[in-house]
Amino acid sequence: MSDSEDPTTQVAPLIQQIEGAVGARLRRRLVEHGVSAYADEQLFERVRSLLQHAADGRNLDVLLLPELLGDDVEWTLEPSLTWSTHRPVVGRAILFAKRRLLLPLTRWLFEYSQSNFKRQARLNRILLACIEELAIENARLRRDLETLTHRSKDVRM
């Protein structure tokens, strides 16, 4: 049976249709609110696809910029609680008091802050991914521009 005779309703084209409709609605709203650049549908689609790839299509644990920033303990948010002490004897008592007495009393505040820290940490990663996607795009454009510049020089000579 050829595709045209296949009576199956295919999901993939329906999803494309839905994504297209959502994109059009988003673009309309943004244009109505003053982002005139998105009057150009093609431009909007390019921006959307780039940001979508950064937010959704990338492994946020593997990014270039964090590697360049060095020791991540110094700059990443640390939402989890770690217990340590440098005092061999008194330290244990202090840790015990913190874990068993203070933490139970303040856990509600800790958990409230922790969930917000986790969101912020995730958003930071997404922003880093966006920056990296833009840097890649910029590097490609620069390379293409240099190639074109060389070509035009060659033609003139």
Partner: peptide, 22 residues
């Protein structure tokens, strides 16, 4: 869903609304 062609999927609130409307 794709293997079965048995429904739709969404990533965002807008896609959810559009797919449910559909």
């Amino acid at each position: 869903v794709l293997r079965a062609n048995g429904g739709l999927y969404y990533r965002t609130a807008l896609e959810f609304a559009e797919a449910l409307d559909y």
